[in-house]
Amino acid sequence: MKNNKKTSKDIDLDEDWEDFIKEEGLIDYNKIPVQKAEIKGWVQIAFWFLRIYILVMIIMVIIGFSRIH
């Protein structure tokens, strides 16, 4: 970006088209880079909780559906 301190009000589109495009995030290069998260700490606990929750619910669903038929 030519001038990072510029606000949207200061931008003259005739001259700063690239700034407008970048500020608006219209082109991919302005996107926040996303990398795979490191699963540790409370996030790891949350994932284990999710696995157990899904397992328990699937067992309950199987029992529930088997009683319908």
């Binding site: 995030g25 302005n30 996107k31 926040i32 996303v34 795979k36 998260a37 699963i39």
Partner: peptide, 16 residues
């Protein structure tokens, strides 16, 4: 608004 990415893309890229 912050990421300019949808929910599916964020889960896929961030959590595998």
């Amino acid at each position: 608004a912050v990421t300019h990415r949808g929910h599916a893309e964020m889960i896929w890229k961030r959590y595998g």
